[in-house]
Computed example of a mutant assay.
Amino acid sequence: MKRREPDKPQPFYKGRGAASNITGRFAEHSSTRESDGWQTEAEPLEQLLTTSIEEKAKSIIATNQSPDIPFTQSINPYRGCEHGCVYCYARPAHAYMDLSPGLDFETKIFFKPNAAELLEKALRKPNYVCSPIALGANTDPYQPLEKEKGITRTLLEVMQKFRQPVTIITKSQLILRDLPILAEMAQDNLAQVAVSVTTLDNDLKRKLEPRTAGPKARLRTIGALSENGIPTAVLAAPMIPALNDCELEAILKSGRESGAERAAYILLRLPYEVAPLFREWLAIHYPHRADHVMSLIQQSRGGQDYQSDFSQRRQGTGVFAQLLRQRFIVAIRKLGLNHRRLLLDCSQFDPPPQAGEQQCLF
């Protein structure tokens, strides 16, 4: 019997999560590269540089009514994210910009230089009703571009001035730059942070989230935030069947030991273009495990790659999803996580006087 030669690994861009620029769902035309048979070796892939694009936003606070999302207001200082997490549920948003949810999402980053100005205007509107604002629902507010642009920092300064409660989710240790602001807000119960820890395995991290901080750096970030009195959660997300779900308890334990008070997890979500991008990623990095991973995902999503139903999209259904949930419940009980609910205080919201306004004398 002739021995079957192993498949040649498909090329991919080093330091990038997606392997291609998949066509967005709104595009009328698409193109693809096909071999003509003459080339015997794969062409080396050119280096992909990140491009930042200025976007003059007209509004800055987004609202939602989704019952499974723990906030009703959010701000995204950027569109796209250079972290390059291949599983990111925000990738399909780039299709609205006539760009690909694939490589374009992590290499063409839009920034909003007027974000702080728009936020201040929004907070001063007479009909504004204060509720916590989530920074970075569809992007990481502390991705690499923030070091240069500082947009997240200016937003925090406005929130501090108005005593507007804020929650933040990030994978970046750059958040420690703003530790003084966050610590001061946290003293008045106006700030909370969640640090996402997807894996404790550096090799898997490099493949799955190529431009994010390493696991140890994220745990140190949890520790620094907690030590400065900022309520901090560890977010084990996403949990990917047969890939990193075996780490759930270890992630929660490491987060707790670093100072996290609360924890949450989310089962992998593959909406729209994320599903084919993730399948492509599996074929490159874990070809012999790909079918098993996708089988478990579909068992947890009603036989499909994804279901958008609010009641189950974060945790899934089926045997695997139920076992994952039970494991989480047992782990947080054992570790003493989530023993108290932390609610930010909206009663302190107080727009400061503008220049020229007469202040109250009494």
Rank of each mutant, 00 (worst) to 15 (best):
P6Q: 13
K8G: 09
P9W: 15
T23V: 15
R25V: 09
S31Y: 05
T32M: 05
R33W: 11
L45C: 12
I53N: 02
E54Q: 06
N64D: 10
N64R: 15
Q65M: 07
P70N: 11
F71W: 15
Q73D: 03
S74I: 12
P77T: 10
R79F: 05
E82M: 03
R91A: 08
P92E: 10
P92V: 03
Y96E: 14
L99W: 01
P101Y: 05
L103W: 01
E106N: 07
P113G: 07
S131Q: 12
S131L: 12
G136Y: 00
N138G: 00
T139K: 01
Y142A: 09
E146A: 04
I151K: 05
I151G: 01
E157L: 14
E157C: 07
M159K: 02
V166K: 00
I175M: 06
I175T: 00
I175Q: 00
D178R: 01
D178S: 05
L179C: 03
A194Q: 05
A194G: 11
L200E: 08
L208A: 07
L208E: 06
N228K: 09
V234T: 09
P238S: 07
M239N: 03
M239I: 15
D245C: 12
L248H: 09
R256F: 05
S258L: 13
A260R: 00
A263C: 06
R269I: 04
F278R: 02
W281G: 04
Y286D: 02
Q304A: 15
Y306R: 07
T317H: 04
L323W: 11
V330R: 15
R333N: 11
L335H: 08
L335C: 08
G336Q: 10
L342F: 05
F349S: 08
F349Q: 08
Q354V: 08
A355T: 06
A355I: 09
Q358I: 06
